[in-house]
Structures are given as C-alpha cells and as structure tokens.
Write a protein that binds this DNA or RNA. Structure first.
Length: 948
RNA sequence: AGGACCAUAGCUCAGUUGGUUAGAGCGCCACGUUGACAUCGUGGAGGUCGGCGGUUCAAAUCCGCCUGGUCCUACCA
C-alpha cells in the first residue's frame, strides 16, 4: 500500500470497476429492496442537497445488498419543465440573440433535446463521483417513450373518470413566464406597501345612515378597481344594512355595481366596506361565487390593462350584458403604472380619502421573481378530493410511515385542505396535453390523435389541433415509482420492486412530490409507492445560512472531494452573477473563510461527514471541521491497515481451518468489542440513525482498534519470547477484525473499504478471486464471542497505563523515560492481572520495572494514582516537584469532596432512601464508599508530601 | 394569528422508557520525530444542559410560561 492515503487515486478506479462488473444491478435473488432516486433535473448539477441525499440512499442500498437482498436503486432524471426551458431560453438568447418565439416551438424543443444530450450526462457523472451504486442499465428520463405512455394513460383515464376537467378559473399567473404556476411555486415575501382609502359614490342619491353620499373602501391594489363588480359589507353590520341591494357608481369607470352582504367583509377593519374584484383576487372570487357576481377581467397576460374588460359568469362563459367599457387612458399600461395613474386620478377627483403605510406580503413566482397575478385563464385541473382519501388513509393506517414521525402531521394538514390541482402549464417543454380541439372548440381527450378520431367517430378530414399546453412537471414525476418499472404493462419489475422500500427526500418537496406520488400511485396501482419516507433537512452552510448563488456561500460537493484553489473558488462564486455588485464582498468573505482554498478530502470523507450529521428532523449545518476530521479518519484507517499488512503479509495468519492459535487477552477483548460495535451499527442503520452508525464505527476503529489493540499487538508480535501460536493468534485477530471493520464501513465509505479489503481479505481467508466487498455478508454480532472477563481485564490494564501516563504528564516526566512502578492494596485478581499483563504494561507505559509493594506503610515517596481500590505508585526520589504534586493532589481531593458532598446530600434525604428503588440507593452507597476511599488515599499522600 | 421544530463545551452535534462523575469531533493549552499514522501520539483545560416555575425522593430528560432562532400555514380587502 502507498504510504499516504490518496483518495483520488482509488475512487474513480473502483467505481469504474464496479460499474464494468455490473455490480449495481439487482442480483435477482433474495427479498427485494428498492429505492427510487428523486430524479434530479437533467440539465442540473449536483449540489450539497443531492450529495447528502445520495449518500444516504447509497448507504442504505449497499447495506441491504450486503445483507443479500435483491437490491434495486433506480436512477433517472427529470425534464423539469420551467427550469429547463428557462435555462435553454437564456442560452439561446446569449448565443444566438434569439427568443424562443423567434425559433418557434418545434425548433426550440429541438434545442432543448440537444442541450439535454449535451449536458444531461453532467449530473450523472457527478453522481458516480459520489459512489452511488445505481443500476445505470435501467436509467430513465421523465420524457422518455415509456414515461410518455404512462403519462398519456394516466391523463386519459383520469379524464374518463371525470377527475380531470378543463375550465376558466382564477390561477396564479406569472406575467413574465406567461404560465400558470401552482400555489407551491409561489413564494410570499414581506413588503412595505401602501393602503389607499377610496370614496365610492353611492348611486341614485342614496345615502348612508350617517348621511354620507359615498362608501369608503381600502385597497393595496388600486388598479384592480377597474374590475370591481361589487362592494361588500358584513351582513351583521348595522351601519350599512339599508344599503345592501343598492348601488355605487364605480369611480373612473362609471359602472354601476351593487352593494352586497357577505361575511368576508370585516366590520372592524377600516370602514367595514370592501371592494370585490372576483377576477383578480382569490378571496373576492369566493365572494363572487357566494353572491353570484360577474367576473370582470381587466388585464392581459402581461398584466397590462385591457382596452375593454372581459366579463364572464362563474362557469367562465362570456357575459354579454355587462358594461365592459374601460377608460382609454389606462389601456396598455402595466399594472404598476396603472396603479399610479389611478391613484392620481382618484386624488384629482377628490375621491382619495387617505393613504396609509402597511406591511403586507406579496406573492412572487419562485422561478421568475415576478409578482404573481391572480388571473382568469383556461386551465386543466385534477379534482383531488377522491384521490386524497386513499392517500391519507395509507399514512393513517401505517402502510406508509414517515421518519421522523412528525412529518405525518405536516402531510395530513396539507392533504386535508387540498385545492384542485392546476396541471396545465403554458410552456413548450414538457408532456403536451393529450387533448385535441376541432374548429368550434370541442375537445377530445385520447392517447393520440388517431385514437381521438376513432373514439369520437370523427371524420378523417376534420381538422384537429392539439392543446398547446404541457403538464406540470410534478404530474409526470408523480408516476415515478411505477412509471420507471414499466407500468402500464404488468412487468416482472413491477411485481418484484413495487411498492418500493423507502423514499429519501427533503421536507421541502413533501407537498410537491411525495403527496402527489402517493395519490397517483394509490390510484393507478392500488399500492402505496413506498413503505417508508425518510425525510431529511436542508444542507446549510457552516453559519446556518441557506446556500445560494446570490449569497456566494455555495459549496460544490465535487470541490470538497477534489479540492479547489482559492482563486478558482472565488471565480466560481462571483462569476455570472445576477447582482455583480456583491462580488467584492463575496470574494472577501471567501478569502477569509478559505485562505488556502479547499483541500481535497475524497468522497469517503464527504460521505462520512454527511452521515455523521444526518440527524433526524433538522437542517444540517455543514461543518468543514468534521470533513477534515473524517478525512483524517480515512487516513487513520489507511495507516492502521498498513500496519496490519506489514505484520501479516507473508506471515502465517492462522487462516487455515485448524491452525494452532493462542489468543491473548487483548485478542479476546477486541473481538468482543467488535461484536458490540456490529450490534450498534446494525441497530443504528435499522433506525436510520446514520449519525450513530458512523459514530460507533469511528469509536471502535480509532479509540479501540488503533489506540489500544494495535499497540497491544506490538509486544506480542515483536517479542522474540512470544510463542508462534500467540503471534499467529494476534495476526489472525488483527486481520479478521480489520476485515470485519471494512465490511462494516463499506456502506458508508465504499472506496477506501474496497481498496483495503482487497488486500486484507485474502489474509483472513475469506476471499475468493474477483470478489468485491460490496457483495460480502454484512457482519452480524456473535454473542458467543462476547468476553466480559477479557473486557474487565483490559479495562484494568488501560487504567494502570493511563495512571502512569497521567503521572508522567503531571510531573513533567519525559514520555520516553523508563520508570519503575509499584502497585499496592490490590486484590488477588489484581495480582493475577499483573502477571498476565506484565509485558503489555511495561511496553505501553514504558516501565522498566513493575511489582507489588506488600507493605503500603513503607511506600517510598511517590506520585500516586488510583485504579479502583488499587494504588499505582511511581517512586519519585530526586525527581519530585513538591509543589506540583501538592497542587495536583489538592485538585484531586477537591474533586472527590464535591462528589462525596453530592452523594451525602442525596443519602441524607430520608425520602430518597425511602422512595427510590433499592438498587438506586445501593448504587449511591457504593459510589460514596469508593469516593471516600479514594479521598483517604489522596489525603494520606498529601500529608506525606507536605511533611517533607 | 395558528402550528411545527430547535436552544447541551469557543464551533458542529450526540445524549430513545427520569437515576451518567453530562459525552464525541473540531478548536484551545502543555509535552512528544518510540519501527502504521504529525492527516499523528500522550495528558489537560473548558458546560449552574436558554430563563422562570411546577411534577418527583430524583429533571438536560416530563409539564406550563417566557425569551431567542428556524420553518410552515393563514391573513393583511
């Protein structure tokens, strides 16, 4: 093995090898286990969230595979409608100076496919760098042929069952992107706004009870005044009871609109009167429905004022008898410009009563960043009530379980208050809606144009045009678990791998994706899509900030793996920015955070960091310190393995079936500890507690195997007096324990474990040519190998060694200086232990002599440490620093006093003794005795030294 | 406004049915090139577990209130 651990040299080599050997495909044997990857955007690149998520999925997959399960990790990418379309639009604009409209639909879509073929491999290459053991032979795309069929099928069937309908409805309209978007794609941002109070004159000479000839309404959106179709007052409001059914004259427009009574009007707010604009406000739309008001649309798709309004009834049918005239002055003005003009005109007309500053929230499109406009448009909807019922039941009855559990509440609260799902998008990139129209606007839904004609008996010469819209991306990704397995065909894969075992996803897409998958899958397969949902948090930067390009705090997982120099990192963070003025600050912050750039850490270290931070139900603050730490851990494992190989390669490691071996206490101890570790890691994996799993392995490898066992093996291996059988035993233990550790580590650190395993496994005698650690059995603890006696003895040994080391450090004695130690007040067992461990003790504690002091009262001047009841003395003649030792003893006595004080108080409490379980009281008494004995020894020692 | 989650060492985090001398890694201090490893070794310092109150013999752990933070939902006509 190379002297230093260099991850870049082993990682790509092993991944290629595994892939070439087709090790990721299902074995076809054993109980099935399947995970569907949340499909990343095909043109995207791997971010920290992906890297984290993929690490968890890969760890689960490799772990299950090692347990002999028929394991499928399904890979695929998403066409991601809006995101991809925008990306390609920008690219085309930059390269050719053309808009998508310049190109036309066909040519533009060709461009998108071209871009997909060009860049679609980027994220999958990055996924390989993460070590993801996905079955590449089954890679899918949400717009491939199979998916196309599944989507058409689902759409047509839902339409046949009247669960998909088309209608003119108020939707969230993005005036920049010219498409509807879902509620979930709307981001509400707090804003400093204004509140304008307008006077609306009462018509027909009517007055209020107070004698006013007008009503005052307030709005944050004056421009929607043009589309008002009523003024509402609360039905309980005595001030306006007499006005209900009367009219006001809409200022600037002149339209007569009624005063209606509706509970939406809040008597305590403002004047208690509210203007109602059903075509431009979701609440008002509901009022319109209750009061039978017309919908008066005054905006174009750019959110500019129309020349004449459009009036519709609640079914979206045009209304002829409404006055749709609008003042010419506003025609063509954008909504914000129109607002200013209308406010000015109202003011000039003496109708502006008051202007108030308010804080309000505005809806923004999360893609375009434009203010969303509620707009009346023709859209397709999925009626979700029926679909939601089984989807809720599946979680209620435990068919689907969320980890952690509390996300189920989030799921329920959303599912129980669902609005119909608007699935049409006015985009070009996506699954085009399988609906055709004849010239008079009749619509025919079918799997193809030919089927539409056949189904509806349409003549071949009747011109049909397909709906221009495409489906919401989440409509197709909702079919992901079964669409990837060949549905609607009844395939072998469906039978084997569906429902899938677990979905690993972020809480942020529970609504977008998880809920829709559950609805669609229950509907079309009669099965749940997955049995468990492991929900993880967001990966944030070290300060807890969300990573974003505009903040300049983005870390690229590949940079953490390969390393990156400072200047390149700065260029990456400040290049191609939306707000270039921030570049300087970002560069400065980056320089101060990473003065040397970022060192290479390797994939295994990155994965281990994610796993160690994968605690349930909270966001992850990515910790560079931990990344360094786990890179060091890899290095530690590497070097420990070098030690093992140096001592084992070419030697007899007792691999033969009946080899004569003698196991030392240390051998039995480390094997026993390994069993405990195997139990801990397995349990943690079963519970999705990857932080515990990684911690347990780290502890064992570093603090037990390396710190103690390797050290304890040296005296045996390097002592000429030791028997060949004992050397063989120690070598065998070194090799076998390491081999098991590598299997235990493999799901978490696939590369380094494979690299080392290939060399270690042959020595352990468990290796057949051409095998991979990937498919070795997962280590399961054998309780017969637990050895409490060995554990107690080794704990004693460690205690004595630490005691001597402690004395050295406190007394400032050079670590290498040979010392003499005396033990006293030991039991018979202690004496046996010393004889059994004399060699270990003298080597590890650097003692030239160690023996028993039979008459403690004759003890020479010495520094003392306690190991249980027993005392360890290091005679200090001529060396002792009196003051230092007195100070040390005073500190120790003080510590014991505090412990004793605490317990005496507890035991002095009568109700504690009376009410606490006997075992607890006994334990406290035992501790008290121990502490008191320790204190006594320390005090004697102190007095002795003080007397010098 | 309603809800969820969080608050433990300088930093990032464990601490599953109440009883532990409250732990780990990083960072810090001292010493150290002993034949796996300075990406290291040995020893050490550092916490009244956000605050107040309650339940209990016993609270980091259970309950209530408060403060601070993150997020979600709703409202803001």
């Amino acid at each position: 093995m190379d002297k230093t651990y260099q991850p870049e040299q082993i990682e790509s080599r092993w991944y290629e090898r595994w892939e070439a050997d087709n090790r990721f495909a299902p074995s076809g044997e054993g109980e099935p286990f399947s995970i569907m990857i949340p499909p990343p955007n095909v043109t995207g690149s791997l971010h920290m969230g992906h890297a984290f998520q993929d690490t968890i999925m890969d760890t689960l997959t490799r772990w299950q595979r090692m347990q002999g399960r028929n394991t499928l990790w399904q890979i695929g990418t998403d066409h991601a409608g809006i995101a991809t379309q925008m990306l390609v639009e920008r690219k085309v604009a930059a390269e050719e100076g053309k808009s998508r409209h310049d190109l036309g639909r066909e040519a533009f879509i060709d461009k998108v496919w071209e871009w997909k073929h060009e860049s679609g491999g980027h994220i999958t290459r990055q996924l390989r760098r993460m070590g993801a053991s996905v079955d590449w032979s089954r890679e899918r795309f949400t717009m491939d042929d199979g998916f196309y069929q599944a989507v058409q099928e689902v759409f047509v069937r839902l339409h046949e069952e009247k669960l998909i309908y088309r209608g003119k409805r108020l939707v969230n309209w993005d005036p920049t992107l010219h498409t509807a978007i879902s509620d979930l794609e709307v981001e509400n941002r707090d804003q400093q706004g204004q509140f304008w109070h307008f006077r609306y004159p009462l018509a027909d000479g009517v007055t209020t009870d107070a004698g006013e000839d007008h009503l005052v309404v307030a709005t944050t959106r004056p421009e929607t005044l043009l589309g008002d179709s009523a003024v509402a007052v609360n039905p309980e409001d005595p001030r306006y009871a007499s006005l209900v059914g009367k009219f006001v004259e809409l200022p600037l427009v002149g339209r007569r609109i009624p005063v209606v009574a509706d509970e939406h009007a809040d008597m305590d707010k403002g004047s208690g009167c509210v203007k109602i604009t059903p075509a431009h406000d979701f609440n008002d739309y509901e009022v319109g429905k209750r009061c039978g008001l017309p919908l008066i649309n005054v905006f174009t798709q750019d959110a500019a004022v129309l020349e004449a309004a459009e009036a519709f009834d609640l079914q979206g049918r045009p209304l002829a008898d409404i006055d749709t005239g609008l003042p010419a002055a506003y025609a063509g003005l954008g909504r914000f410009e129109a607002r200013e003009r209308i406010v000015a005109d109202m003011d000039a007309a003496g109708l502006l009563a008051q202007v108030e500053a308010v804080n309000n929230t505005l809806p923004y499109g999360d893609r375009s960043g434009d203010v969303i406009e509620p707009l009346l448009t023709d859209q397709w909807f999925v009626s979700v009530d029926e679909l939601a019922k089984p989807a809720i039941a599946a979680v209620e009855n435990g068919d689907i379980e969320f980890v952690p559990k509390n996300y189920e509440n989030m799921y329920f609260s959303w599912m129980r208050d669902l609005q119909d799902w608007c699935i049409s998008r006015q985009l070009w990139w996506g699954h085009r809606i399988p609906a055709w129209y004849d010239e008079s606007g009749n619509v025919f839904v079918a799997r193809s144009e030919a089927e539409a004609r056949e189904k509806h008996g349409l003549p071949a010469d009747l011109a049909l045009t397909q709906d221009e819209d495409v489906l919401d991306t989440w409509f197709s990704s909702g079919l992901w678990t079964f669409g990837t397995l060949g549905w609607p065909e009844q395939t072998e894969e469906m039978a084997t791998f569906h429902p899938t075992s677990v979905l690993v996803t972020g809480f942020d897409i529970i609504f977008f994706w998880v809920a829709r998958m559950i609805m669609m899958t229950c509907k079309f397969t009669g099965q749940v899509p997955f049995k468990k949902v492991y929900v993880h948090g967001l990966v944030r930067d070290g300060q807890g900030q969300k990573m974003s390009k505009s903040k300049g705090n983005v870390l690229d997982p590949i940079d953490l793996i390969d390393g990156i120099d400072l200047e390149t990192l700065i260029d990456k963070r400040t290049g191609n920015m939306m707000q270039p003025q921030k570049a300087k600050a970002i560069a400065k912050a980056t320089r101060s955070e990473f003065p040397e750039g970022i060192e290479p850490h390797g994939t295994d270290a990155l994965r281990y960091t994610f796993l160690s931070q994968a605690t349930t139900g909270r966001d992850i603050k990515f910790d560079m310190g931990r990344l360094d730490g786990y890179r060091n851990f890899c290095n530690k494992l590497w070097n420990a393995s070098r030690y093992v190989l140096m001592n084992a390669e070419g030697e007899d490691c007792g691999a033969a079936p009946h080899a004569e071996v003698e196991l030392s206490l240390a051998d039995r101890w480390v094997v026993s500890q390994l069993q405990k570790t195997e139990t801990q890691v397995t349990k943690a994996m079963e519970e999705f507690r990857f932080d515990h799993a990684s911690q347990a392995l780290y502890d064992f490898v570093w603090n037990e195997y390396c710190d103690w066992f390797l050290e304890l093996s040296k005296p045996v291996l390097w002592d000429d007096a030791a028997s060949e059988a004992s050397k063989r035993g120690t070598r065998r233990t070194l090799v076998r324990v390491l081999e098991a550790v590598l299997r235990l580590a493999h799901p978490m650190m696939p590369f380094i474990s494979e690299e080392i395993w290939q060399r270690v496994a042959p020595l352990a005698g468990t290796h057949a040519e051409g095998e991979s650690v990937m498919t070795q059995p997962w280590p399961l603890a054998d309780d017969a190998l637990l050895d409490d006696d060995a554990t107690r003895d080794i704990e004693w040994l460690k205690g004595v060694i630490v005691a001597v080391r402690n004395i050295r450090a406190e007394m400032n004695i050079a670590p290498g200086k040979p010392l003499e130690a005396l033990l006293t007040k030991g039991s018979e067992a202690d004496r046996e232990r010393l004889e059994a461990n004399r060699l270990f003790l003298s080597k590890l504690a650097k003692l030239e002599r160690v023996g028993w002091l039979d008459a403690p009262e004759q003890a020479p001047l010495a520094a003392t440490q306690l190991v249980g009841e027993m005392e360890v003395l290091v005679p200090m003649a001529g060396l002792i620093d009196k003051d230092a030792e007195l100070a040390r003893l005073a500190k120790e006595i003080d510590k014991q006093d505090k412990l004793i004080g605490g317990i005496e108080k507890k035991l002095g409490n009568e109700s504690f003794v009376a009410k606490a379980p006997e075992a607890v009281v006994e334990k406290e008494r035992g501790k008290l005795a121990d502490f008191q004995a320790a204190r006594k020894v320390l005090v004697e020692q102190r007095d002795k030294i003080a007397a010098l």
